[in-house]
Amino acid sequence: MRLWTVTEPWGPEGLTLDETADPMPGRGEVRVRLRAASLNYRDLLIVRGRHVGGALKHGAPIIPIGDGCGVIDMVGEGVEQHQIGDRVIPLMVPNWRSGPVSPAKMAGALGLHSPGLARELAVFPERHLIKAPSYLSDSEAACLACAALTAWSALFEGPGLRPGDVAVIQGTGSVSLAVLQFAKAAGLRTIVTSSSDDKLASVLALGANHGINYRTVPNWAGAVRDLTDGVGADFVLDMGAVGSLSESLRAIRMEGQIAVVGILEGGSAIDPAQFLASAARIRGITVGSAEMFDAMVRALTHHEIHPVVGTVLPWTEAPAAFEMLSDGNQFGKIVLEF
């Protein structure tokens, strides 16, 4: 089989298409033939060798990408939950089954601590797989394990939101678009910020209630206050850009919740007095558990929500796809098809 690897010196230009023997499943394992894989910003950080403060400085080769979909083409002895022909999604964080997150549960993340999905064939313990919703295409199903699950966790695994509550969504990246879709299905009122009028037009077409261009309205928190009669938003999805958290604190109502999901360039410092004045609840979001994934799939299927796919490329063009993601101009997920 063929697979992409990357090592020092890191970067999309360092991706190498290699070939190795086909893997074979052992007891309790299945082999998945990949059909599609989608890129996330965390994958770009990994390929650049600096995910979570440079976790990849050991220099060992990485098979990147943690989000994908495939079909089981071989099963080992003792497999009970799956069979040949099942279309499945590998859990990006397979050890987090339920409950609160912990370092032990985060160990083994695909494309970081264990081999990712930039390969034609992969073997997994059967419990590390979720059946793909039948109504989704391969490319759409390949968008669920990272961005969609992160969005679900941000919106629904914290203090409860109710229909009519106001959700501010920073940006139009894959997590932001998934939050918009889930928020719309839950009856929330949504305000999306972006630096592009064209992208704002696209999110309004997807059902956003309001759009704010933060380049022309840098004090977007004031605009949020105006749209909420001075009360502020109930929820803010914060992408971790320079100054974003400070502005989120100005936009949130007292005791509202801010979900931080981004690791964008430069970070975001806050004034402790501003934090205390808001009495906001700030949560860092790290994907989600298998239990959350099951709940998300039920909701997706009930509402027949389709992830927003922007660009589809052959998987052999992975370096070009990572460069495209690095440019930051895409709208919707970048998907590699096998």
Rank of each mutant, 00 (worst) to 15 (best):
M1E: 08
M1F: 13
R2K: 13
P9M: 07
W10Q: 09
T16L: 14
T16V: 15
E19Q: 15
E19H: 15
G26K: 13
R27L: 01
E29T: 05
L34G: 06
R35P: 00
D43Y: 00
D43Q: 01
I46P: 00
R48M: 15
R50H: 15
V52M: 15
V52R: 03
V52T: 11
L56P: 00
H58Y: 12
H58N: 14
I63D: 07
P64N: 12
I65T: 09
G66F: 10
I72H: 10
D73Q: 02
M74L: 08
V75L: 08
V79E: 06
D86R: 13
V88P: 04
P90D: 14
V93E: 15
P100I: 05
S102W: 04
A104K: 06
K105P: 02
M106E: 14
G111S: 10
G111W: 07
L112D: 11
L112W: 03
H113L: 11
S114L: 11
A118Q: 02
V123E: 07
L129T: 07
P133V: 01
S134E: 15
S134Y: 13
E140L: 00
C143F: 06
L144K: 01
C146A: 14
A147F: 07
T150I: 06
A151H: 04
A154I: 04
F156W: 10
F156S: 12
E157T: 03
G160S: 14
L161Y: 06
V166K: 13
V166F: 09
G171K: 10
S174N: 15
V175P: 01
V175M: 10
S176N: 03
S176W: 07
A178W: 12
V179F: 11
V179P: 03
Q181C: 00
F182Q: 01
G187K: 06
I191Q: 12
V192G: 06
T193R: 02
S194N: 03
S196F: 08
L200R: 08
A201R: 14
S202T: 01
G207E: 07
N209Q: 09
Y214M: 02
T216P: 00
P218S: 11
P218M: 08
N219P: 00
G222N: 13
A223P: 08
A223F: 08
V224A: 09
R225A: 05
D226S: 13
D229R: 15
G230Q: 10
G232W: 04
A241I: 01
S246Q: 10
E247Y: 10
R250Q: 05
M254T: 12
M254C: 09
G256Y: 06
V260M: 12
E265K: 04
S268E: 09
A269N: 10
P272I: 05
L276P: 00
S278E: 05
I282W: 05
R283Q: 13
G288M: 03
S289H: 03
M292V: 01
A295V: 03
M296F: 11
L300Q: 08
E304H: 09
E304T: 06
P307I: 00
V308E: 14
G310Q: 06
T311C: 05
T311G: 01
T311I: 11
L313F: 12
W315D: 10
T316D: 14
P319Q: 04
M324V: 00
L325F: 11
L325M: 14
S326Y: 05
G328Y: 14
I334R: 02
I334D: 13
